[in-house]
Amino acid sequence: MSERVVRDKNIEVRGDETVEAYGNSVVNAYDNSTVHAHDNSEVIAHDNSTVDAYDNSEVIAYNDSEVYAYGSSTVETYDKSRVIGYDKSKISARNNSKVYAHNDCMVFAVNNSTVKAYGGSIVYAWDDSIVYAFDESVVKAHERSIIGNKSPYAIVVDFRKMKIILNPESPFTLEKEG
């Protein structure tokens, strides 16, 4: 397994290679490769690639890729890819993607994606997506999404029925300003 360090470069990485990308680099990753992205780097991940995204990096993940997002990174996933997001990362999950959102992430879930929301994460769900709300998360459910409120401190907003769905153990009450 080889390792490369790049800075301000536009490169491709394939096979079992691992790349450390710094300083606005753009990396296209294929065939089980691994990328550690720093400093606003951009990664397009294909074919079971793995990406660790730090420091406002941007990732687009296809074909069963896996992304670990930290430091307010932005991730778009397609085709059964998986994202484990932390630290206010912004995640758009499409086409059967799976998301584990921790520490105040913001998630947009569409097309049969599945989301487990932890911490104070916020999820917007459309198109047959399935969302489980844990901890203090908030879920806004549109169209045909399916939602489960798994925590007394989580809040689910069902736009179809104009209802706020709380856990049976929830301490929250409703108040209208005015």
Binding site: K163, K176, E177
Partner: peptide
Amino acid sequence: KIVLNPNSPYTT
């Protein structure tokens, strides 16, 4: 508390 606008249609 969940605080809504006076014109909010939501119920819990």
